[in-house]
């Protein structure tokens, strides 16, 4: 292992970054495929049915079958669509979803090269990239040139802007306590107390806004089947739909990683169980958060749109602001 790290350190920078990116891309795409299967299985069990179990043992080849189906399907473009933007939108979604992984560290920077880039303003960079994700959805919905996608995209724009504000404020509480914007530093500040204990209000706000930001149930008004057919991706088919689909799951994975890094202690072991390596703890925490996500989806009904907006602006935002003020006062008096 040490030999491999030394070889990696000696190689030119661009080659290291290229290799790391390729490996990470492969890992993330594979995780996406099995996260999808995991969701269908868990939802099946929660609804007392077996879930996918025909393709391969326990349905393990289901993602491959789905991928083959999506690739072979015809790629339709509606006559009224704006061709350029209609084709561009899925790529914007996918690009922003993947580029976040350039700075997410999966282990302490002291213990090896676990991140592609260790950015000092890491958490701000995360916010910046995720805030670009809305363009894929809103441009895609608009460019489809029909009414349901347009409604879906307008909803998503309003929803994501509203909840992003509270999300950023929930980050600020963590930043004040940790005293740094680098993700590595934030995890190191959680050596003893994980921030979901000291920042419990911030954590609850983050979980709610994270679900809303990724447009998942109970905040999935962007693609509310009962009202909008399939929302912003009604007109998309084949591989272009697949790209939106990948982006959604990769975003889920991203917010799970952010929750792990900011609130669940990152790669720090609980109760001093350092026998298990940090990366395993990190993955366990991410998987737990993903499970929680799926649990929410199969439990809660969809919210009504006006209540969603009222909740975001009149409840979440004031609470998040108060949390920031309270944290600031606490840190200022404690020194």
């Amino acid at each position: 292992m040490q030999g491999a790290i030394d070889t990696l350190n000696a190689a030119p920078l661009w080659l290291v970054v290229l290799i790391k990116s390729a490996v990470l891309l492969l890992v993330v795409v594979t995780t996406f495929a099995y996260a999808m299967l995991f969701e269908r299985k868990v939802m099946g069990w929660m609804q007392l049915r077996p879930g996918p179990n025909r393709v391969g043992p326990w349905g393990l080849m289901q993602p491959a079958a789905d991928a083959a189906k999506l690739i072979l399907k015809e790629d339709l473009t509606p006559k009224t669509a704006d061709r350029l933007i209609y084709r561009l939108a899925p790529f914007i979604s996918l690009l922003t979803a993947f580029s976040v992984y350039a700075i997410i560290p999966f282990g302490a920077s002291a213990s090896g090269p676990w991140a592609i880039g260790n950015v000092n303003a890491g958490i701000l960079f995360l916010l910046a990239i995720t805030s670009l994700g809305v363009y894929g959805i809103s441009l895609g919905g608009w460019a489809s040139g029909s009414k349901y996608p347009l409604l879906g995209s307008v909803r998503s724009t309003a929803q994501m802007i509203s909840y992003e504000l509270s999300m950023s404020l929930s980050f600020v509480g963590v930043l004040i306590i940790a005293g740094t914007t680098s993700l590595d530093g934030i995890v190191n500040a959680q050596l003893h107390w994980w921030f979901f204990i000291t920042q419990c209000v911030g954590f609850v706000i983050y979980v709610i806004t994270a679900v809303a930001e990724t447009n998942r149930a109970p905040f999935d008004l962007v693609e509310a089947e009962t009202e909008l057919v399939a929302g912003f991706h009604t007109e998309y088919s084949g591989l272009r739909f697949g790209l939106f689909f990948i982006a959604e799951y990769v975003n889920m994975l991203t917010v799970s990683c952010i929750a792990t890094l900011l609130f669940l202690g990152g790669w720090n072991a609980p109760f001093g169980m350092t026998v298990v390596p940090g990366i395993v703890w990190f993955l366990i925490k991410v998987a737990t958060f993903m499970f929680f996500y799926i649990w929410l989806r199969s439990t809660l009904p969809r919210m009504r749109y006006d209540r969603l907006m009222a909740f975001g602006w009149k409840v979440l935002l004031p609470v998040a602001t108060l949390n920031v003020i309270a944290t600031a006062i606490y840190v200022a008096f404690k020194g």
Binding site: S131, L132, Y135, S138, L139, L150, V154, T157, E164
Partner: peptide, 19 residues
Amino acid sequence: MQIIVYSGAILVLFLFVIA
């Protein structure tokens, strides 16, 4: 900040209004 404020907030509103 350039990305968060301009691309993430202001330009999204432009798009919202135009759409």
